[in-house]
Amino acid sequence: MSDSNTTNFVNPTTFILLGIPGLESSYVWISIPFCTMYVTAIFGNFTILFIVKTEPSLHEPMYYFLCMLAVTDLVLSTSTMPKLLSILWFSGREIDFNICLTQMYLIHSSSAMESAILVAMAFDRYVAICDPLRHSTVLTNPMVAKIGVAVVLHSCILTLPYPFLVKRWPYCRTNIIPHSYCDHITIVKLACADISISSYYGLIVVSSGWLDVFFICVSYTQILRVIFRLPTMDSRLRTFGTCNSHLCAILVFYIPQFFYAIMKRFGQNVPLHFLILFANVYVMVPPVLHPLIYGLRTKEIRSRLFQLFTHTRT
């Protein structure tokens, strides 16, 4: 299909992803860090899943939630990076309309799922620190499974209207998406219709994310209250240390999203290619860093990883 800015169609069968405009001559060099990040994310998250599965001592609620996070990170990174690499390596900018909707749904649902999993992990830390004697009775395996199902259903249902809303609009202006992947608001802006419903529903989804942040803050407020009541500084630091990995995972997930939202809202003078680059980076940061955070900062995973590599070498 032609890359023309104006076409005579109403329901396009394909869209054209613009890629990273203005940097076409550097595509090969840009692909190197993104390909490295993707390979690192795939290897790191599969390693986490393998270690937790093969080590019986890690069959606990925190590590089950970590496995959920790893699976979500794999979906999130695989939803965007193969298509970006196709654009950078082969100029594969054309994407089928239904595949575009699927990509959009996977990106937004996995992001919502990741946020909800971080809330579940905050609840785990809250029970472990504020009511440790009941931790094993409250967070049983059936309860963890129920929380996992609730997280999946919440995220999938929350973002399910996105593809249906996008599909109902007529697209008679252009089929060129000024992005490297199918983002909800970027697509609906191409519609030649009143897209207020999509915009309002997008705000509802964003508000759900901020509600997750609120629940995490409430959990850690209670955790800090308990920690400050401990008698010695050593016990406070030791107890707080059990939250370090989770806190780092929260920062890695929310801080890039916050800055991206600020840039999109107030950065009218920010070049488009920079926004697109940052959009891809912030999608890849959590899948890359979460396995590193838990692999390096969690003693049980670190020791099992060391045993694994030592055994492999011998």
Score class of each variant (00 low, 15 high):
R173L: 08
S155H: 09
L23M: 10
P286G: 03
C182Q: 00
T36H: 08
P161T: 11
D124H: 08
L84Q: 04
D131V: 15
I51L: 01
D96A: 06
T221V: 13
S235P: 12
C130N: 09
Y126T: 12
F253Q: 02
H179R: 03
L277A: 03
I187H: 07
A261N: 11
Y63V: 01
S2Q: 10
F123S: 15
Y63Q: 01
Q268Y: 04
I99W: 11
A41S: 09
F90Q: 10
V218Y: 14
G92R: 05
I216P: 10
F50H: 04
M81H: 04
L305V: 01
D3C: 12
V270N: 13
C156Y: 15
F214H: 11
V119N: 13
R304A: 00
D234W: 13
V152M: 13
W29L: 15
H108P: 00
N98A: 06
S25D: 12
F90D: 15
I176L: 13
D124G: 08
R225W: 08
Y181R: 02
L66S: 04
F97S: 12
Q307D: 10
I95E: 01
W169T: 09
I185S: 11
N5G: 14
S111K: 10
I262R: 03
P142E: 04
N8P: 08
F34L: 07
G92S: 11
V285N: 07
F50D: 01
M1I: 13
C243R: 00
T310R: 09
I99P: 00
I30A: 05
V71R: 04
D234L: 13
L74K: 02
L275G: 07
F309E: 00
M121E: 13
P231V: 04
I99D: 12
V252M: 10
V119C: 10
Y27N: 12
E300I: 00
M37Y: 02
C35T: 08
Y200I: 11
I216Y: 05
K53C: 05
F266W: 10
V252R: 02
L165G: 02
R302A: 01
V75M: 09
Q103R: 02
L101F: 00
A249D: 09
R265A: 07
P132K: 14
C182Y: 00
F278P: 00
F34W: 07
H108V: 08
M104F: 03
I48T: 03
R168W: 06
Y38T: 03
F90M: 08
S111R: 05
V281S: 03
N175R: 14
A193K: 10
L305C: 06
S303R: 07
L308H: 01
I187P: 01
F123L: 15
S207C: 10
T186V: 11
N5F: 14
P231L: 06
S219F: 14
F97V: 07
E300A: 01
C67K: 12
C243E: 05
T137I: 15
Q257G: 10
R313P: 02
N269Y: 05
N175K: 11
L308A: 02
E60G: 03
L17F: 10
P291D: 01
A122K: 02
L153W: 15
L308C: 11
L23C: 13
G295P: 06
R229Q: 14
L84W: 03
R168Y: 13
I147T: 09
F306V: 00
T47Y: 02
P287C: 04
M104A: 09
S111F: 10
R229A: 08
I195N: 11
P142C: 15
S180C: 09
P286C: 04
R225Q: 11
I99Q: 11
G241P: 07
D131S: 14
R265E: 08
